[in-house]
């Protein structure tokens, strides 16, 4: 029987060695992982803004396309990604904003892109989610995301906000169909989208003034 002191010492040494190994490896891989994460983010911004790029583009190519077409800037505390065509002299073609919030199992993060009128949705992407595969996980499917394109973030009654609806009938201009069996996920996505939409709507005048300029 080994003494308690030995057991404690053994655990401390083993723990320290494992921790040192992992720290070294984390330090070594961190820049590569950061690059990959950045490329993933850029890919999603480009996809939401519907900027043309090749499907098999490398992360360097993606970053270059991003840097030439998209300007990242902060206005009124919101980081926005402005896409402008080279010939349009700085007038933005579309604007993307990041949204995030709690999902059913883990955080959901994505980008919402609006046309230059700041009302019509141009595209939406999710770059981080851990929803139930096959149910809530379907928010990343093209079928769900493409519903948003062309929808308005302002309802018929003039109030800002989007509705992910359950019942049948014809969808209004700010409504998209929910995913069956994924009520919780859809409610949460709706809430986080409305939070970012309210944020934009509240500061729209400021953002718009600069857009027109």
């Amino acid at each position: 029987m080994k003494s308690n002191l030995y057991v404690l010492g053994y655990a401390a040494v083993l723990g320290t060695v494992c921790a040192l190994l992992l720290t070294a490896s984390a330090n070594f891989t961190a820049p590569y992982i950061a690059d990959n994460a950045r490329a993933e983010e850029v890919l999603n911004i480009l996809a939401a803004l519907n900027v043309p790029f090749q499907a098999d583009a490398s992360s360097e190519q993606l970053l270059e396309i991003f840097n030439t077409n998209v300007r990242e800037q902060s206005r009124e505390g919101i980081t926005i990604y402005e896409y402008s065509l080279p010939q349009s002299k700085g007038k933005p073609e579309a604007v993307a904003v990041r949204f995030s919030g709690p999902g059913l199992w883990g955080p959901i993060k994505g980008f919402l892109a609006l046309e230059s009128d700041m009302k019509t949705i141009r595209g939406i992407t999710f770059y981080e989610q851990e929803e139930t595969p096959g149910l809530g996980g379907e928010i990343v499917s093209p079928a769900f995301r493409e519903q948003f394109i062309g929808k308005s973030i302002v309802g018929e009654d003039g109030k800002a906000g989007i509705v992910i609806r359950r019942s049948g009938g014809k969808a209004a201009r700010n409504e998209v169909d929910a995913i069956t069996g994924a009520t919780m996920t859809c409610d949460k996505v709706e809430a986080m989208l409305n939070a970012v939409i309210k944020n934009i709507a509240g500061k729209k005048s400021k953002i718009k003034v600069q857009n027109v300029k």
């Binding site: 083993l14 723990g15 494992c18 190994l21 992992l22 490896s25 891989t29 590569y32 990959n36 993933e40």
Partner: peptide
């Protein structure tokens, strides 16, 4: 502890080079 160390090493390797 030993197993977890090796698993995390492999996971970090994948994340860095096979995203």
């Amino acid at each position: 502890a030993i197993i977890a160390t090796f698993v995390i090493l492999f996971d970090q390797f994948l994340k860095a080079f096979y995203w």
